[in-house]
Simulated assay, not measured.
Amino acid sequence: MPYVEVLAPQVPNQRKAALAKSVTDGLMTAFGVTADTVTLYFLPISPDDYAHAGEFEPQGAGQRILLKVHAFRRTEAERRAAAIALTRGVCSAYGVPGDDVAVYFLDRDRSEVAHDSKLASD
């Protein structure tokens, strides 16, 4: 924990590796976690699977990239620092402006997370 879902167009593996490194580094700094606790899941979306403002936008025109961060609750300052780091990483790896990047924090209570059948709150 944290886990990050990256919903974005398909890119070469070296660009995904660059994003994985920058996201991991950013969360280590912002959240005070170690690298071995950060996991990214790349969920590629086709440019033909995107709509915005009620308009279907084939070819991915203006397609936004979404990062969903599943983590234990952090302070607003920690989330702000993470948002800056993650957005910069996406912009660099995908060559998009910050306007095309959204980061959503899906905070979890320790009683809502289990590993090896044990709640993190136990």
Rank of each mutant, 00 (worst) to 15 (best):
M1L: 02
P2D: 03
P2S: 06
E5L: 00
E5K: 01
V6S: 02
V6F: 06
L7A: 11
A8D: 01
Q10Y: 05
V11Y: 01
V11M: 10
V11K: 02
V11H: 01
P12K: 13
N13W: 09
Q14I: 11
R15S: 12
R15Y: 02
R15P: 00
K16Q: 10
K16S: 11
A17H: 04
L19N: 00
L19P: 07
A20K: 00
K21A: 10
V23L: 04
T24H: 04
T24I: 06
D25W: 10
G26R: 12
G26C: 12
L27K: 05
L27M: 15
L27R: 07
M28T: 15
M28H: 14
T29H: 12
F31G: 14
G32H: 04
G32Y: 01
A35V: 10
A35L: 07
A35C: 11
T37I: 11
T37A: 13
V38H: 00
L40Y: 08
Y41K: 15
F42S: 06
L43I: 15
P44R: 10
P44H: 12
P44K: 13
P44N: 15
I45P: 04
S46E: 08
S46F: 05
P47F: 11
D49I: 00
Y50W: 15
Y50M: 08
H52A: 12
A53F: 10
G54E: 01
G54I: 13
E55D: 12
E57I: 11
E57Y: 04
E57S: 08
P58A: 14
G60H: 13
G60C: 14
A61R: 09
Q63C: 01
Q63W: 08
R64F: 15
I65Y: 05
I65H: 02
L66H: 03
L66W: 01
L67F: 02
K68S: 03
V69W: 05
H70A: 04
A71F: 02
A71D: 11
F72C: 03
F72S: 01
F72D: 00
R73S: 12
R74E: 02
R74W: 01
T75I: 00
E76C: 04
A77T: 15
A77V: 04
E78Y: 02
E78H: 09
R79G: 05
R80G: 06
A81M: 08
A83N: 09
I84E: 14
I84A: 15
T87H: 04
R88W: 07
G89L: 02
C91H: 05
S92E: 15
A93M: 01
A93V: 06
Y94P: 03
G95L: 07
V96H: 05
V96Q: 08
P97Q: 09
G98N: 06
V101M: 01
A102R: 13
V103T: 14
V103S: 13
Y104V: 14
Y104A: 14
F105H: 08
F105P: 12
D107Q: 14
D109T: 13
S111Q: 08
E112F: 10
A114S: 04
A114E: 05
H115E: 04
H115N: 06
D116T: 12
D116Y: 08
S117W: 10
S117Q: 11
K118S: 05
L119C: 03
A120P: 03
A120D: 09
A120T: 07
A120H: 09
S121E: 08
